[in-house]
Design a protein around this nucleic acid. Structure first.
Ligand SMILES: [Mn+2]
Ligand SMILES: [Mn+2]
Ligand SMILES: [Zn+2]
Ligand SMILES: [Zn+2]
Lengths: 140, 140
DNA sequence: AAAAAATCTGCAACTCAGTTGCAAATTCTG
DNA sequence: CAGAATTTGCAACTGAGTTGCAGATTTTTT
């Protein structure tokens, strides 16, 4: 039960100082292969080895977020969407475009807006998130 | 039972083609006086004349959003935050800064980031939303 | 100023994403 | 491998937001 993907996941967990458990390996692998942020239930559906309790998925995501491996990309219709903390700079995650027609979200990994300059001093910006809405090529 | 504020609210509803009801007038007035986006329960607390059922508040907000008077600014801890659709350009709302320490949100009404340029053609951007996280002057 | 038509409101019950407590299972440490 | 530390699954719970529907309000028509 080994593969390059799985080994990378194992290493990430080890480096992060997290217990290397089956659920965490499985979820990390799902996220590593995802093209867009996923909800808890979507992650669950993509698990191949065995099903996981949703509580486990949520708690795993929480752990992965805590160590910086995963980001909560955005919320859509009250549900959280999670993705690997990749293609993000120190203070800014890549933007996401969601089509209001078909609902599909696209990661704009090659776009980076300038960081907002807050005139009023004293503000410390830790993260800037950009969200775009509109019509995707298929729906426009 | 009249006031400049109330009259403005009444006019806004009339222009939007919505029935001019007591709940709508009251909620609009609360939003007109708010310095930051509010949750349903926060709006309810600020009502002075009489209490409204939360269903009414939600449905009123929905109506106001539909006609473009109100925006759902962002979601925080699974709750929606609403504000008057003011200080927004055609394709971009003003950014919001939320302090991760004290939880207070600030409207950055004087900041405007450039609209993202999506290389891949065919995308139609209808709205760009920017959200900032960090420490406010009081907490930094 | 009715009366009729159109729309809104409140209530109660419901949905559904996410959380909590706790016992059992797994992983790490020495 | 034993013991300590941590994680997992289950069941029950939370809380924001939604739905159906009867009765109330607002607007439009006579
Ligand atoms: Mn992404
Ligand atoms: Mn605002
Ligand atoms: Zn689309
Ligand atoms: Zn603060």
């Amino acid at each position: 039960m080994t593969s390059p993907l799985r080994d990378r996941a194992r290493q990430m967990l080890k480096d992060a100082g997290l217990y290397c458990t089956e659920p965490r390996l499985a979820i990390l692998q799902v996220l590593m292969q995802a093209a867009r942020p996923l909800r808890q239930d979507q992650i669950g559906e993509k698990l191949t080895l065995r099903a996981l309790n949703k509580v486990t998925v949520y708690r795993t995501l929480e752990s992965l977020i805590e160590v910086g491996l995963v980001h909560r990309a955005f919320t859509y219709r009250r549900a959280g969407y999670f993705e690997l903390a990749d293609h993000c700079t120190e203070h800014q995650c890549h933007p996401h475009f969601t089509c209001t027609q078909c609902g599909v979200t696209h990661c704009l990994t090659d776009i980076l807006l300038p960081l907002a300059k807050i005139a009023q001093k004293g503000f410390v910006i830790n993260r800037q998130q950009v969200r775009l809405e509109g019509l995707c090529p298929a729906c426009a």
